[in-house]
Design a binder for these strands. Structure first.
Length: 346
DNA sequence: CCGGATGATTGACG
DNA sequence: CGTCAATCATCCGG
């Protein structure tokens, strides 16, 4: 039975109700042949086919078996095929493949870029590294944040994958179920493989729309995580003591003009293992805070002035004085820096 | 836990 | 674009 040609449009579901022209075909094809008995038979068989989906499974199973063994069954099947063949032409080309969804592609790309849907290790760490670089944090502290970010990303990724797998499994289960159903039904009514395929497509589309929701919420979670991670203000760490000393040293030894050039900033940044913009921030903050309350900083100023003076004398006694000519004005008064520090910045 | 210290951000200005 | 001034958000010592 299975090798009979099967043609049936499946978009109307599994029932036969509403098939046009079936009744008259039956009359035309069988009316004159054998009288009332046959007509009755065919009426029965049709009725059974039409109502088979309304019945409970085991009941239907028994009916189906009876139906398949019915002597009129092959003939009826052929008739159905014939009708189907006529109608299938008008159905063809009704709907075509939809273009790949732009939003879905965007989501996929983003998940891939964030390392959620890509290969296990590479993408995630790369994205985290990029994010870390963007924050411009110093070496020591962002490794902790980095691992924190990584851990959270991994968490998201795991949830995403288990959910995705669940959906996929459910989709496959449902698809095979429907396919079995259709294949089973194709023994009593004509169903073409193409129609089964179309039905599978419909199911897949439905499930992928569910997946899209998953992807969307995953993307959202990643964005939130990322924005929190990238907002450096929320995880500010003080510079280490050495960096602060280097910066202060420069600041107080250039008190008359505490505006490091771009190269000087780069140099300081390298020495302190921070970024140039962090150096700029530091000097900006320092200048404004120093100016605001010079008194508060005087002790500090004296200290650094004394220190630079000491190193300067050390250097000069050793014969080479390479770094002194830059700011003769400010570095000179080491004995009483507190008196000359006023109104330098204005 | 509080308050000052501190790094970063924001908006205005030249 | 660099700087200033105000402000935010966090850190950290007492």
């Amino acid at each position: 039975m299975d090798d009979q040609p099967r043609l049936m449009h499946s978009s109307h579901g599994v029932g036969m109700a509403g098939h046009p022209g079936l009744a008259q075909h039956m009359q035309d094809g069988t009316g004159g042949a054998d009288g009332e008995g046959r007509k009755q038979d065919i009426g029965d068989i049709l009725q059974q086919i039409m109502t088979i989906t309304d019945q409970s499974l085991d009941e239907a199973q028994a009916r189906k078996h009876a139906l398949n063994c019915h002597r009129m069954k092959p003939a009826l099947f052929n008739v159905l095929c014939e009708i189907k063949e006529k109608t299938v032409l008008s159905i063809r080309g009704a709907q075509e493949e939809e273009p790949p969804d732009a939003q879905l592609m965007r989501l996929d790309n983003m998940l891939l870029a964030e390392g959620v849907s890509g290969p296990e290790k590479g993408g995630g760490s790369a994205a985290a590294a990029a994010a870390a670089a963007a924050t411009g944090g110093s070496g020591s502290d962002n490794s902790a944040e980095h691992s924190d970010y990584r851990a959270k990303l991994t968490q998201i990724r795991q949830i995403y994958h288990t959910e995705l797998e669940k959906y996929e499994q459910a989709c496959n289960e449902f698809t095979t179920h429907v396919m079995n159903l259709l294949r089973e039904q194709s023994r009593t009514r004509p169903i073409s493989p193409k129609e089964i395929e179309r039905m599978v497509n419909i199911i897949h589309r439905k499930f992928s729309s569910i997946q899209m929701q998953l992807k969307q919420s995953t993307c959202e979670a990643v964005m939130i995580l990322r924005s929190r991670f990238l907002d450096a203000r929320r995880k500010r760490r003080n510079f280490n003591k050495q960096a602060t000393e280097i910066l202060n040293e420069y600041f107080y030894s250039h008190l008359s003009n505490p505006y490091p050039s771009e190269e000087a900033k780069e140099e300081l940044a390298k020495k302190c293992s921070i970024t140039v913009s962090q150096v700029s921030n530091w000097f900006g903050n320092k200048r404004i805070r120093y100016k605001k309350n010079i008194g508060k900083f005087q002790e500090e100023a004296n200290m650094y002035a004394a220190r630079t003076a000491a190193t300067a004398t050390n250097v000069s006694t050793h014969g080479s004085q390479a770094n002194s000519p830059s700011t003769p004005n400010s570095a000179g008064g080491y004995s009483s820096p507190c008196y000359q520090s006023d109104r330098r910045i204005q």
